[in-house]
Amino acid sequence: MLNIRQVRKVFNAGTVNEKIALQEINLTMAPGDFITVIGSNGAGKSTLMNIISGGYLPDQGTIEIDGKNVTKLAEHQRAAFIGRVFQDPMAGTAPNMTIEENLAIAYARGHRRKLALGVNAKKRKIFQEQLALLDQGLENRLKTKVGFLSGGQRQALSLLMATFTQPKILLLDEHTAALDPKRAQLIVDLTVKIVEKNKLTTLMVTHNMEQALTMGNRLLMMHEGRIILDLPQEKKQQMTTKDLLQAFEQARGGEAFAEDRFILA
């Protein structure tokens, strides 16, 4: 479904601030794969997300989605294939527009925007059905501006908007990190439910090792722009967070920083 070949990305090339964000990354995702990605700050996780979504264009290498080469397509052109939820609950929705207007924008994904009313009776019915699945009571608040919703509700809505048009790839960029534990769990449960129901090919970045182990069928660990560990389902299931931390330290050549321990714990 997703095929990344030899992708490299360097920021501020040729200056003192040069930063190699991705070094010759190769990654293939089968349809229905749900991969979790962990790694310390600056490991290249977010860059990888942005390379896939088209937020950044790679310096070299190719990206294929569902057999189609999208390497040179801009973000809005790739959006037809990619659903995305950001870390910041404010990032995935338009705060001054109503819930139904936000959903109408998401609903138009992959279609040419026409001069027809964005929200009509037919669409409203679909939106209500979909919102009911979130269990947040949002189906009765279609005309509420999204800015009035809580962070958890906005993130649930973002998740719905990213997924209900069945994208080829779903990108989750630490989408529970900004929420309190209770809300985060709610979004985790919703994520699992939605991904399973729609059989979405999903790539999820997380700082939470517990999440990385319990969710999905494959785990990637990144460090300094490389994928240093790739665990299939069988191995992942046997691992504990402690094992994972150890594997991380090993892969890094034994240097154990208390800082990383803290970040990953």
Binding site: A80, A91, A94
Partner: peptide
């Protein structure tokens, strides 16, 4: 309207 409200978001939904 979304371009004025949250341009990053609307790009992720395919608007130029």
């Amino acid at each position: 309207r979304a371009t004025g409200d949250n341009s990053k978001m609307i790009r992720s939904f395919g608007a130029n």
